[in-house]
Amino acid sequence: MLVDSHCHLDFPDFAEDIAGVIARAEAAGVGRMLTISTRVAKADTYRAIAEAHDQVWYTVGTHPHGAAEEPDIPAETIIGLTEHPRCIGIGEAGLDYHYEDAAPQTVQERVFRAHIAASRVTGLPLVIHSRDADAHMEAVLVDEVGRGPFKAILHCFSSGARLARVGVELGLYVSFSGIVTFRRSHELREIATAVPLDRMLVETDAPFLAPEPHRGRRCEPAYTADTARSLAKTLDMPFETLAAQTTDNFFRLFDKAAALEGRAL
């Protein structure tokens, strides 16, 4: 079984097709999905999806694109919202400096650090979004890990080799999306070969970033299998080995899900 460790089933792209999306995922061997929060204010939406579908868990948090909309939500609010049994993580939160009209960097950092605090208190892993912010992300992570450990994953990794290395040294996991399958992603595939196998996850970030051979289509969790096949080829190992390892890694990181399913770690 594979796990799509990061998708957005609440997006309008799936509004009329969630049952079909889940069925196609299961047919492709993707038995579990984690739908990721982009706004704390939408926590009820994520919870409803997870309650309606046994294959789905959810997180709660504020994406950096929404940091200006939710600039001052305290860690205590996030902590309270994670008490639901199907909420197994925090985020996605982080730093994204790609767009000129993004929230101010100081606001993004403040929101990010609040999520780190919530992760540290709850013991739930933080799903980290980082884009065009490698140096600042590294500085924040080094500082915060120094204040106390927390579990986290660098999701949809597309940053540089240094951030991957530092993240692993700090105890983080690294997740690869369909980007790793793209023809021009030579550098990213090289980075993947340096990530320890026991720290690696796979995801879609659906509805975005459909992997080869589905580029140009709406991405969906079933395509996790295509990313995993490409990654297995990059790492020169059987697909089944990579699938089993990344699934074990998911449950080790998101141990609340493992406990819910009675899965031995």
Rank of each mutant, 00 (worst) to 15 (best):
T35L: 02
F239E: 10
P149T: 06
P64I: 09
T247D: 06
L154R: 08
D226G: 00
P104C: 10
T241G: 05
T193F: 03
Y97L: 15
E100R: 14
R218V: 10
T82P: 12
H53N: 06
E220P: 04
M33Y: 03
P207L: 01
R252S: 06
D96F: 02
V40A: 02
I90D: 07
A259S: 13
T62M: 04
E138P: 08
D96C: 12
T35C: 11
S37T: 14
I116V: 15
F254G: 01
F239H: 09
I116N: 03
L34D: 07
T35H: 06
D226H: 13
A23G: 02
F150K: 00
V195F: 03
G91L: 04
F254R: 04
A194F: 06
H115F: 15
Q108F: 13
D255Y: 01
I90W: 04
D226K: 01
G148N: 11
L126N: 12
L141F: 12
A257V: 07
T246V: 14
F176K: 09
V168D: 01
T193S: 15
V56N: 00
A27K: 15
T224I: 10
D17T: 14
E69I: 00
R183K: 15
L2C: 04
L253S: 09
Q108D: 08
R184A: 15
G148Y: 13
G171Y: 09
L141N: 08
A228S: 07
F208M: 12
M137S: 10
E16L: 01
H129E: 06
D17I: 06
R252N: 01
A232M: 01
A243I: 07
G31D: 13
I73K: 11
T227S: 03
P196D: 13
V168N: 00
L209I: 10
H6C: 07
G146P: 07
C156S: 15
A228G: 03
L34N: 12
E100S: 14
I88F: 04
E261V: 10
V140A: 09
Y97W: 11
V140Y: 10
L231D: 09
R165K: 15
I36V: 15
F208Y: 15
Q55K: 08
P207V: 05
I88K: 00
Y173T: 11
E203I: 08
S185R: 11
R162S: 14
V40G: 02
I79E: 05
L81I: 12
L197Y: 03
S119W: 01
I36K: 06
T106Y: 13
A48Q: 13
A139Y: 08
H129T: 04
V202W: 00
D205M: 10
E70A: 01
R218S: 05
F157P: 03
H155C: 09
T193A: 15
